[in-house]
């Protein structure tokens, strides 16, 4: 346990020694703000128009959840797909290139501690980024109380989605000593898990259900609507565990390759 804390602490500091965490966090905050502004101004326009032409528009419900939070969470999930590989790309590949992996593996640490230490560090950085994006929600709450249940669900969904993305990125960084390749592999794999959702066949058979289940964003839909479904939670957790497990196997294999 003490080793895990020590390792996580070092990895966490390493993020802030380099400009990566600042650059990624900054861009994430700006893009989040832009998307939030766009969703909110659209909501403002829609409510203005409805107040003027209520008789034409009919009884439509204008909820903050539907008009602001859902698109915001949807957009954030895509931004995460683009940004999180940048956080994970250096985790193992940098150490492989520098050779410091050799020392790391000769210190009295288990592969599990090393993997978990790196994962926890990058996950904490990601949670910090999410916390910064929550400032937008705080601004919204200043004017009108948002549906807090939807906010909580959305953030739970983002946190689970992030764990899945980061675990995959961590695995990819064990495969190569080149950080760019590690990032590209993560992008590619995550995009595949996204676009697989567009390939769901028309007829609703077992195969279609499987393809739909595999799609990484189809599971996020319900979270952004404010619904927690255990199937979705299980999907993201098993996705993250699978890639953490593969990370361990990959480290083991690297030792035999020498």
């Amino acid at each position: 346990m003490r080793n895990l804390i020590t390792l996580t602490g070092r990895e966490l500091r390493a993020f802030f020694y380099s400009p990566i965490a600042y650059a990624t966090g900054f861009i994430f905050a700006v893009i989040t703000g832009v998307f939030f502004y766009a969703a909110l101004s659209y909501y403002g326009m829609a409510s203005y128009e409805m107040s003027r032409m209520a008789q034409f528009a009919g009884p439509r419900e204008l909820s903050l959840g539907e008009y602001v939070l859902r698109p915001l969470f949807g957009n954030l999930s895509v931004v995460m797909l683009l940004m999180l590989p940048l956080l994970t790309m250096r985790l193992f590949s940098e150490e492989r290139k520098a050779g410091s992996l050799e020392l790391l593996f000769t210190w009295p640490l288990t592969d599990f501690q090393i993997t978990l230490g790196k994962f926890l560090a990058v996950y904490l950085v990601f949670l910090l980024m999410l916390a910064v994006s929550a400032l937008n929600i705080a601004i919204l709450a200043w004017f009108a109380p948002p549906p807090w249940g939807v906010v909580a669900c959305g953030y739970l969904g983002l946190a689970l989605l992030g764990a899945a993305f980061l675990a995959m990125g961590l695995f990819m960084s064990t495969l190569t000593e080149n950080q760019v390749i590690a990032a590209a592999l993560s992008f590619g794999a995550l995009l595949l898990f996204w676009v697989v959702g567009w390939l769901v066949p028309e007829q609703k058979d077992a195969f279609a259900a499987m393809v739909e289940y595999l799609s990484i964003f189809s599971h996020f839909e319900r979270f952004s609507k404010g619904v927690v479904d255990t199937r979705d939670v299980v999907y993201y957790l098993s996705f993250a565990f699978l890639f953490l497990f593969l990370t361990l196997r990959s480290l083991e294999a690297a030792k035999y390759r020498g």
């Binding site: 003490r2 080793n3 020590t6 390792l7 070092r10 500091r13 390493a14 020694y17 380099s18 520098a98 050779g99 410091s100 992996l101 050799e102 020392l103 000769t106 210190w107 009295p108 640490l109």
Partner: peptide, 23 residues
């Protein structure tokens, strides 16, 4: 090791404290 791969982004004392704790 032959290539002395250290963490360049750490300070000497901080690095040795880190290794000491690990050990």
């Amino acid at each position: 090791p032959e290539t002395t791969p250290l963490y360049g982004d750490m300070r000497v004392e901080e690095y040795l404290q880190f290794v000491g704790r690990i050990k």
